[in-house]
Every structure is written in C-alpha cells, then in structure tokens.
Design a protein around this nucleic acid. Structure first.
Lengths: 204, 204
DNA sequence: GCAGGATCTGACCGATCGGTCAATTACCGT
DNA sequence: ACGGTAATTGACCGATCGGTCAGATCCTGC
C-alpha cells in the first residue's frame, strides 16, 4: 500500500487538523480558540494536535503561511514593476484571485493581523502590506491613496463581511465553485472602476 | 463638593475602565484581553473592574452600545427612506462621521462581530448590518451590490487597516482632530464616487 | 466624630489554558 | 513473526482565566 494518496475517506491527520484549526482561528479568533476545541472538532485528542504541531503558534503559522507567501509574491511583483495601467490590471485580478482562493487565511490575517504582533509569519504579512501601501502612497494625493485603500480593503472586507453575515451554510469546506466565478467578475469590475483610469477621470 | 464633574485629573473610574477596556478589546481582541490586563492598564485591581462592571461581557456591552445605537439610527433612517441620490449623499456623510467618531468601537465590532455571536448588543449590531445589506441588495445587480459593499466595507476597513498598520503613535486617546478633517473629506469623496451616479455611469 | 454607603482590594474558587511526558496502539518493512 | 517507527492518548503540570466574597478604606451628610 502507498503511504499516502490512499483512500479519500481519511486524509492525512495533520491536514485535517490544519483545516480545522484554520477554520476555528478564522471564525472565533486565535485567542478564542483552544487546542481542546480544535481537537474535539477534528475528532482527535489535544495531545495529538500537539504531536503534529509543536504549539498553537506553529499551527497558526502552518495555516496561513501559504496565503502570506502568495501575498508576498504578488506585492513584490507589483512594487518593483512600473505602475502602468496594464500592470494595475493584472495586479487587480491576481489580488482578487488571492482573496477568493485563500478566504479563511485572509479573513484570519486581515481581522487579527494586528493582535498577533509577535508571530513571525504574521509580521511578514504585515510587512508585505506595508510595502504595498508604500508603493501606492509614494507621490499620490490623499484622495488617490484613499481610493486604493478603499478598493483593496473593500474587496478584502466585502468577502470577510459576506462570510460574516451571510453564510447560512457553514463557511468552511471547499470552494463554492460556481458562485466564485460571478463573485470574481463583480469584484474585478468594481475594483477596476476605482483603480483604472476609466472614462475621463484622472488616474493620478 | 459636587459628586461629579469635578477636577479633570481623575475622571470617573468607571469611565477610565471603559476606555481602557475598549482600547484593549479593539487592539488585542475580546477573547485575547483578560480582566487582569484591563485592570493593570487602567491602574486598578481586577476586583475593581468587576465592581464597576458585573462581567467581562457587561464591559463589552457598555463599550460598544453607543456606537451600535448610532449605527441602528443611521440604518433605520436609510432603510425606510426612499433611496434618492440626496438620501444617499446624507447617508454617506453620516456613515463616514460614524466611522471617524467611533473608531475603536467600529474596529472592535467589525473585526470581531462574527466571533462574538452570543452577546446581545453584538447581535443587534449584526442585525443592523443585515438590514442595511437588505436595503441595498433588493433589486440590485450583483455588481451594484458589490459596489455598495466595497464602498462601505472599504471605508470601514481602510480606517481599521490604517489603524492597524500605520500608527506609530498609540491609536488610543482622543481624536486626531485636524487629520480627521482631511480623512473625512477624502473618504466622503471616494465613497461618493462609487455610490453616486457620477458623470455618465448608470446608477442602477 | 460618627454612621453608612460607595469604592477598592487581596485571598480564594473551580475551570480551563497551553504544554510535557510516559505509555500504549497501529502500522510497515523485513 | 518480529522489531521499530509513527501515531495516538490520558494523566498531569503550573499558570491564568472569569468570577465571588469578606473585609479594608475612603468620603460625605449629619
């Protein structure tokens, strides 16, 4: 028998725990989630959680690292490239894709990034956001900055708020597939309206 | 001697505690804040905190109730009124003023409203948001809904994110007076761009 | 100056926190 | 069949949690 990629009924325990932890962290907060809750929710004992992950913090790190690294890559590309309209366009779509693809991690990072100051991976994420903000703010008017801030923050938070207020069904699980396509299109359009030099409005 | 409104050096103890608690709840989260922390930060003992407020939850309730009630009033006025452009305009400015005037409470409510499901005052706030969302969504296209969502969420979160990433100085204390004026103007402009039928874009 | 409420505090409570450890069980190559 | 590693668990630890309670201490009206 293969050691992994076996029957789909029971995925790797560490993955189950990671998914459960991310879901809990995102919904009730990092501080508000106990290892016991995670263990219960995933069907393991608290000791098992700590066997797979050295600490609660390690669990958090494992949960959001992929999303943070995607964010870093996106920000780096945008920051060092010139800010042509085309560059802005691809940035917007990549940003929206990141939001949709990493909902839970984004929710977690975005709404608790400030409180989780000490954790290294969170600091990396905060640093990336700061780089992005600098790239935006250099030589821009306040209104222009605000436009960028509202666009990105709005897109981000619209998802989070949507998840917060409108999930009758659990917001966990896998992607909502078909809804995401409409959502993606609408988000890209609205953000583009704000950030691209549509019609006769000045870009800067 | 008067029983209150006396020397400004030491305000009412319950007010000090309330301010400290709100600040802590907003910065490190409700679950992440202990009564001991609040007591230490305010210069009292934990017992004193529980003398003035019956429980941690009561402290939270007292801290955000004013902001929630302002929100309810605003949402009610908007929801029952017809949605003319003028009505939208006054809604926008009132909304921005609410954000600026109740920063900490908004931050707290917005970024933890979901996790604090059980608390009655939080539920009232969530209900108000839902009423607002319904008023917006009824008979609107997805893009239109998204425009509204991004605008309000963006304005809200731009403040929160700003507070999260850009306060060299403590974000506590009183209002930043002069900065707020520029901020207010910029916010109103950007939100208006999105929500008002500027130039030749269709309103609906 | 004294009675009495308002305020403040330390000691204490059971529960739960994150985390350690030794022992047990499941599984796999040989 | 066996040996060893990976996985899982309950017992247990000190610390801290939110909250109670019985005094201290202060302050004020009489």
């Amino acid at each position: 028998m293969p050691t992994d990629a076996t029957l789909p009924s029971r995925a790797r325990a560490s993955d189950e725990l990671l998914r459960t932890a991310l879901e809990q962290f995102a919904t009730v907060g990092f501080a508000g989630t106990s290892l016991q809750q995670i263990a219960d929710h995933a069907g393991y004992s608290k000791s098992s959680v700590l066997y797979h992950y050295a600490s609660k913090e390690a669990l958090l790190e494992a949960a959001i690292t992929p999303a943070i690294e995607r964010l870093e890559a996106l920000v780096d590309d945008f920051a060092e490239g010139r800010r042509s309209d085309a560059a802005r366009g691809v940035f917007i779509t990549r940003f929206v894709d990141l939001l949709l693809g990493e909902r839970l991690a984004v929710h977690l990072f975005v709404s608790q990034g400030h409180s989780l100051g000490g954790i290294p991976i969170v600091e990396r994420g905060n640093a990336a956001i700061r780089v992005l903000a600098d790239a935006i703010c250099s030589g821009a008017t306040l209104v222009e900055q605000m436009r960028f801030g509202v666009a990105l923050a709005g897109a981000t938070y619209a998802l989070v708020a949507g998840a917060t207020f409108f999930d009758d069904v659990e917001m966990s699980e896998l992607t909502n597939s078909h809804d995401d396509d409409e959502m993606r299109a609408a988000l890209v359009e609205v953000v583009s309206e704000l950030l691209l030099p549509a019609d006769g409005r000045q870009t800067r």
